[in-house]
Design a protein around this nucleic acid. Structure first.
Length: 1002
RNA sequence: GCCUGGGUGGUGGAACUGGUAGACACGCAGGACUUAAAAUCCUGUUCGCCCUAAAGCGAGUGCGGGUUCGAUUCCCGCCCCAGGUACCA
C-alpha cells in the first residue's frame, strides 16, 4: 500500500507531460495563438512545409521530421520578432485513394476526409504552431476551382519570345489578323505552318482554333503512355514492373494517346537562370539544371536517299546535292520543307521520289559530322514505315514489337545490350555527300530532341559499340583521338582529319565554319536544345481535378468562368469504361450546356450539349500554386487577394524532401513565373530558401526460426548471437514489441497465433533480434506511429528526439534506441525548477559567472544552429547546458527564464508550463523576445593547447591566449614533458595556431 | 545507364573555415540506494598489443593512392547504399 501511495505522489508531482501537453494544445487552439495577420508592423516571414498526401496508413514518424524542423524555425522567428505565416493543408487528390475506391467501392472523397481527420489528430498531438484557419485541401471544390481557373489562364496564353513572357491569346489573334505569323516570335509546336494575315482572316473558325492550339501554353499533344490492354487502362510508371502490371501481372505496352500538355519548355531558360537567384541546396539546383538540360548545338538535316538510288553511283548524289545547295540558298528555315517539296517536283525526273524528306538530327558535336557512319532513329519515328524496305520489313516489325514492351526507363538504363535493326534505306550526309545507312534502335527515344541521332562511332561510346556490333565503319576525325581500335574518344583536342573542308582546323575554328556552311546549304542551323520536355497534364483517372474543357467539332473549348468549379461527377465504378475511356466516361448525362435555359419543364434539354474532357489533372496540378492559397485561404473572388499577395509575396523558407526536386519544385516555379507574367503575383521565384529533409527509413527486426534436419520450420527461435549454430530462417517481427533489439517474449507469443507456443534459445537470458534497414512499410512490420511515442514519452520528447536523430537533410533509419536520453533530459530540465519534493522552487539570487557562461553558450549556440538548420547539435547542447546547471545546482530565475525561451521552439509544452509557473501570463511565451547574447561571459584567458609532435597529439599544455608565436614556442620547449617527448631531438619547426594547436616538427 | 546525396565505435551521431577524431546520447559492464523491482546516482566503455596496476606502444573516419607540419575535412581512382529518372506524391 505504501509503495502504491509513494508512486502516486511521485507521479503527480514529477514532470507530467500528458496533462501539460493536452492543456497547452487546447489553450493554443482556443486562443488562436498562432493565427497570422495579413497586416503587421513586424517584418513578415513565411515558413512552408510540403503538405502531405493523406494516406490511409496515417502519419508515420517520417512525416513530422520536416514539420518539426519548420515548426522550430517558425517559433524561433516569432521570438525574433517576425510576423510568421506557418500554414498546413493536404494534397488530397491521388492514386491510392482511387485504388482503395476501386477495391471497396467507397467514394474517394469519403475515405480522404476520414484520412484527413486522422492526420489532423496526429498533427495536433505533436504541438505544431500551424495557423489552421488557413488550411487547404486540393480536392475541395473551393480550392480546385482555382486550379481549374489557372488552367484556363494557361489555355488562354501564348509565350512571346520578344517580350520573353506569357501574354493573352487575344494579342496573338490580333497579330495574326494584322501580319500573319511569319513575324511572330513565339514558342509553338514544331509543325506550325506559316500563314499570312490574309490567309488567317480567310480561315474558318475551326482552322483558326486548330492553329491557336499550337501556341497555347496548355495544348493537346500526342504522347506515349503505359497501356495495359487487360486492365483497359493507362498505368503509372510505378505500377509497371518489368513490362507487366504490378497488379495482376498483365503485359503492358507503349501506346500513343492525345493528351493535355503544359508548354513548360517555353520557360526553360528562365527556369534555368532563376536558379542563380535562389538560396537552395546546390545539389538540388544541379538536379534541376540537369533536368532542364540546356545544350548548345546544331540541327542538321540528312536528306533521304530512296532505296532505288542506293545502287547508283555517288556521282548522281553529289550532283543532286549541288543543285539543292543552289536552290536552297537563303531559304528561311521554316519554309525549307515547302521549298524542298517544290524542288523535288521540278527535278523529279533525275532524282526520283523521296527527296522532299529529310531526317533532322540535333547534335552538340556538329564538328564530328564527317565521322558519321550511320543514323539511328527511334523505333516510333514517323519516317520508319516509309524508310523500311520490303526485305527489311520483317526485321523492323519484330524490333518495333520488342521495343513496345519496354518502358523508357528500361530503354535508358540498359546500356549493355546493343540492339537495333536496319531499315534498308540510306540518308545523305549534307556536308560529305556520303550515303549513310539508317537504323532504328531503342536507345534513341522519340520524345527526346528530334527522335533521331547522327552516329559518330569514333567519338561516342554508345555509337562505337553499335558500330562494332553491326560491323559499321569507325572513322577517326581528330588527330588527338587515342585507342580508336578499342573504344570511342570524345576529345575536342587536336586537329580534324577525314573531315573535308574542316581538315586541319581546331574545335573552336570548326564550329562556326560548319554552322555557316550548313546555313548556306539550308541543311542546318545553330540551335539551343533543352532535354526537358513539355509536361503531360492529364491522367486517365477519376480522383483528380476535372479539366474545364469541352469538345465541339473535335476541338477543345474552355467552359465559362462562371461555371467554375467544374465538379467531379458521380460514377458507378472508379474503373475505365468498357470502351477504354477514363472513369469520367461513366458519368451519366455529364455534358456541358452553355445555355441551359432551354431545359423543358419535363427535364428534357433541347439546348446544345457537349462532351467534357474525360481525363483529369495530374497530381502536381493542385500543389503547383497552393502556397498562394494559404495567403488568403477563404477568398471567393480570387485564388488569393492582391493585398494578401503583396504582403506575403513569397515563401521565405520551404522545407521538404529532395524527391520533389524535379517534379513539384520545377512545376511550381513554372506556374509561379506564368502567374507573374499575367500580373497576378509579384515574385519571379516562389521559394526563396529551401531546405531538404532526409527520408526516415524503417528499421526492421527479425527473429530466427530454427529449421530441423528435414528442412522444416520448428517452433523454436534462436537469439541473434547464437543463430550461426543452427539452420535458421529470418522472420519479420513487429518492431513495436521489440525494445533495444530485445524481444518481448510474451507479446511475441500473442503477435501471431502460430507463435503461441514458441520456445526460445536465449543469450544472457534475453532474446536479441536481428535488424535491417528497409523502407517503412506495413508488410515489414517496421512502421512506427508517432502516437505511440507520444503516449509513452510525450510530444516534446518526440520533437526533440526526431531532431536529435541526426542532420535534417540526411536520410536515416528510425530507431527508438536513444529516446530515453531525450526524455531524461526533459525531466532533468523540469527538476531545475523544482526541489527534491517536486515543489516549484526558483531563486532570485544573482547568477554566478559559471551559470552565466552556461546560459550564454546556449543562447549563442541555438541561434547559430537554428539559422543554419542544424537542429540535432542544439539538442546535444541543451543536454550539456542542463547537465552543467544541474551540477551547479542552479535554480536561479535569471538563468532559467531566458533558458526557457531558448528551449521553447524545441519543447513548446513543457516550457509554456514553466513559463506560467514563473509567473508570466499564459500563452505569452510564443511571442516573448529571444534573449540577447553577451559574448563577455564567454571570454577565456587560457587555453589547453594540444601539443603534437609530427602531427600526433602527445599532451595538453595550458597557455595564456594573449601570447604570440615566439613566446609560445619558448614556453612549450621549456616544458619538461615536451623535452621528454622530444628525447633530445632538435625541433625543425614549431607550428603555432592561436587558440588551436601547437605542432613540433622534428 | 544517367543525375544527386551518403559511408566515422556495438548503435544514432559530433568535430562549423585543414588543427586534440569519437562531444552528446543509447546500449553494455561494474557499483551505490532498495527486502526486491522501477526510478535515480556514480564509474568504465574505438580497436589491438603490453600489463597485477599505473603507464606506454600501435592502428583507426568504406577501399587504394596523392597534397600538407597536420586530412573525417582538399585532389585522383574504385566499392557499397539511398533518392530521382517525366502517370507515386
Amino acid at each position: 500500500m505504501d509503495f502504491v501511495f509513494s508512486r502516486f505522489i511521485t507521479k503527480r508531482m514529477d514532470y507530467q507531460f500528458k496533462d501539460i501537453e493536452k492543456k497547452w494544445q487546447q489553450f493554443w487552439a482556443e486562443n488562436h495563438t498562432f493565427k497570422a495577420d495579413n497586416q503587421s508592423d513586424k517584418p513578415k516571414y513565411y515558413v512552408l512545409d510540403m503538405f502531405p498526401y493523406p494516406s490511409g496508413a496515417g502519419l508515420h514518424v517520417g512525416h513530422p521530421l520536416g514539420y518539426i524542423a519548420s515548426d522550430i524555425f517558425a517559433r524561433y522567428k516569432r521570438l525574433k520578432g517576425f510576423n510568421v505565416l506557418h500554414p498546413m493543408g493536404y494534397d488530397s487528390f491521388g492514386l491510392p485513394a482511387e485504388q482503395y475506391a476501386i477495391q471497396t467501392g467507397q467514394h474517394p472523397a469519403v475515405t480522404t476526409a476520414a484520412n484527413i481527420r486522422r492526420y489532423r489528430e496526429q498533427l495536433d498531438n505533436i504541438g505544431f504552431s500551424f495557423d489552421w484557419s488557413r488550411e487547404v485541401r486540393t480536392s475541395d471544390p473551393s480550392y480546385y476551382k482555382w486550379t481549374q481557373w489557372i488552367f484556363m489562364q494557361l489555355f488562354n496564353s501564348w509565350y512571346n519570345l520578344e517580350t520573353d513572357k506569357a501574354e493573352p491569346v487575344t494579342t496573338l489573334i490580333e497579330r495574326f489578323s494584322r501580319e500573319g505569323n511569319a513575324t511572330v516570335k513565339a514558342v509553338a509546336d514544331e509543325d506550325t505552318p506559316i500563314f499570312t494575315a490574309g490567309e488567317w482572316n480567310a480561315y474558318d473558325e475551326h482552322t483558326q482554333q486548330q492553329l491557336l492550339l499550337k501556341y497555347r501554353l496548355t495544348y493537346l499533344k500526342e504522347s506515349t503512355v503505359n497501356w495495359c490492354p487487360a486492365l483497359g487502362t493507362v498505368l503509372a510508371n510505378d505500377e509497371v514492373k518489368d513490362g507487366f502490371s504490378e497488379r495482376g501481372g498483365y503485359p503492358v505496352e507503349q501506346k500513343k494517346m492525345m493528351q493535355w500538355s503544359m508548354r513548360i519548355t517555353a520557360y526553360a531558360e528562365r527556369l534555368l537562370n532563376g536558379l542563380d537567384t535562389i538560396d537552395w541546396p546546390e545539389p538540388l539546383k544541379e538536379m534541376q539544371r540537369n533536368w532542364i538540360g540546356k545544350s548548345v548545338g546544331a540541327m542538321v538535316k540528312f536528306p533521304l536517299a530512296p532505296a532505288s538510288l542506293v545502287e547508283e553511283s555517288l556521282d548522281n548524289i553529289d550532283k543532286a546535292i549541288e543543285r539543292k545547295e543552289q536552290a536552297l540558298d537563303n531559304a528561311p528555315d521554316r519554309k525549307l520543307n515547302e521549298q524542298e517539296a517544290d524542288l523535288a517536283d521540278n527535278s523529279s525526273l533525275s532524282f526520283g521520289e523521296g527527296w522532299d524528306e529529310a531526317i533532322e538530327v540535333f547534335t552538340t558535336r556538329v564538328d564530328t559530322i564527317f565521322g558519321v557512319s550511320f543514323l539511328v532513329i527511334a523505333p516510333e519515328h514517323e519516317l520508319v514505315t516509309q524508310l523500311t524496305t520490303p526485305e527489311q520489313k520483317a526485321a523492323i516489325d519484330a524490333y518495333i514489337a520488342q521495343t513496345k514492351k519496354k518502358s523508357e526507363l528500361d530503354r535508358m538504363a540498359d546500356t549493355k545490350t546493343v540492339s537495333g535493326a536496319f531499315t534498308g534505306s540510306y540518308a545523305i550526309n549534307p556536308l560529305s555527300g556520303e550515303k549513310v545507312p539508317v537504323w532504328i534502335a531503342d536507345y534513341v527515344l522519340a520524345g527526346y530532341g528530334t527522335g533521331a541521332v547522327m552516329a559518330v562511332p569514333s567519338g561516342d561510346q554508345r555509337d562505337y559499340l553499335f558500330a562494332k556490333h553491326f560491323d559499321l565503319p569507325v572513322i577517326p576525325i581528330l588527330d588527338a583521338q587515342k585507342d580508336i581500335d578499342n573504344q570511342a574518344d570524345a576529345t575536342k583536342e587536336g586537329r580534324y582529319i577525314n573531315s573535308g573542308f574542316i581538315n586541319g582546323m581546331t574545335y573552336q575554328e570548326a564550329i562556326p565554319a560548319l554552322i555557316q556552311k550548313l546555313e548556306e546549304l539550308g541543311a542546318g542551323r545553330a540551335k539551343v536544345n533543352y532535354r526537358m520536355r513539355d509536361a503531360i497534364f492529364g491522367r486517365q483517372r477519376y480522383w483528380g481535378e476535372p479539366v474545364p474543357v469541352y469538345f465541339k467539332d473535335g476541338l477543345p473549348h474552355l467552359i465559362e468562368e462562371k461555371d467554375l468549379p467544374l465538379l467531379l461527377p458521380e460514377v458507378d465504378k472508379y474503373l475505365p469504361t468498357e470502351t477504354g475511356e477514363p472513369p469520367l466516361g461513366r458519368a451519366v448525362g455529364w455534358k456541358y450546356r452553355p445555355s441551359s435555359e432551354k431545359v423543358l419543364s419535363s427535364g428534357e434539354d433541347l439546348g446544345e450539349a457537349y462532351d467534357y474532357e474525360l481525363s483529369t489533372m495530374p497530381g502536381w496540378a493542385g500543389s503547383s500554386w497552393y502556397w498562394y492559397r494559404y495567403m488568403d485561404a477563404t477568398n471567393e473572388a480570387a485564388f488569393a487577394g492582391k493585398e494578401a499577395i503583396a504582403y506575403w509575396k513569397d515563401v521565405d523558407l520551404y522545407i521538404g524532401g529532395s524527391e520533389h526536386a524535379t517534379g513539384h519544385l520545377l512545376y511550381s516555379r513554372f506556374w509561379n513565373k506564368f502567374l507573374k507574367d499575367l500580373g497576378y503575383v509579384v515574385e519571379e521565384e516562389p521559394f526563396k530558401k529551401l531546405i531538404n529533409q532526409g527520408m526516415i527509413q524503417g528499421r526492421s527486426n527479425f527473429v530466427y526460426r530454427v529449421i530441423d534436419a528435414e528442412g522444416k520450420g520448428t517452433n523454436t527461435f534462436v537469439s541473434y548471437g547464437l543463430r550461426s549454430q543452427y539452420q535458421t530462417s529470418a522472420i519479420h517481427v513487429d518492431v513495436n514489441i521489440v525494445e533495444n533489439d530485445m524481444l518481448d517474449i510474451e507479446k511475441f507469443r500473442k503477435f501471431r497465433s502460430d507463435f503461441k507456443d514458441a520456445e526460445f534459445i536465449l543469450e544472457n537470458g534475453k532474446y536479441i533480434c536481428g535488424h535491417e534497414v528497409e523502407k517503412m512499410s506495413k508488410s515489414k512490420f517496421n512502421v512506427v506511429n508517432p502516437d505511440d511515442i507520444i503516449e509513452r514519452y510525450g510530444a516534446d520528447t518526440l520533437r526533440m528526439y526526431e531532431m536529435f536523430l541526426g542532420p535534417l537533410e540526411q536520410s536515416k533509419p528510425w530507431n527508438t534506441n536513444g529516446i530515453e536520453g531525450v526524455f531524461k533530459f526533459l525531466r532533468k530540465f523540469w527538476k531545475l525548477f523544482h526541489d527534491d519534493q517536486f515543489n516549484f522552487s526558483v531563486s532570485d539570487a544573482e547568477p554566478t559567472k559559471a551559470e552565466l557562461k552556461s546560459l550564454h553558450k546556449i543562447i549563442q549556440k541555438v541561434q547559430d544552429d537554428v539559422e543554419r538548420f542544424s537542429f540535432n547539435t542544439s539538442v546535444s547542447s541543451f543536454m550539456i547546458c542542463v547537465n552543467e546547471l544541474t551540477d551547479l545546482k542552479c535554480n536561479k530565475r535569471a538563468i532559467l527564464e531566458p533558458l526557457t525561451i531558448v528551449l521553447s521552439p524545441y519543447a513548446p509544452h513543457i516550457t509554456e508550463e514553466l513559463w506560467a509557473l514563473l509567473g508570466h501570463e499564459k500563452g505569452t511565451l510564443s511571442y516573448a523576445a529571444y534573449p540577447q547574447f553577451n559574448p563577455d561571459y564567454l571570454v577565456e584567458d587560457e587555453f589547453a593547447y594540444p601539443v603534437s609532435i609530427n602531427g600526433k597529439t602527445k599532451m595538453n599544455l595550458n597557455l595564456s591566449l594573449t601570447i604570440d608565436q615566439a613566446e609560445a614556442e619558448k614556453q612549450v620547449l621549456a616544458n619538461a614533458d615536451v623535452q621528454r617527448y622530444l628525447d633530445g631531438k632538435t625541433p625543425k619547426k614549431v607550428i603555432f595556431v592561436k587558440g588551436r594547436i601547437v605542432n613540433i616538427v622534428v
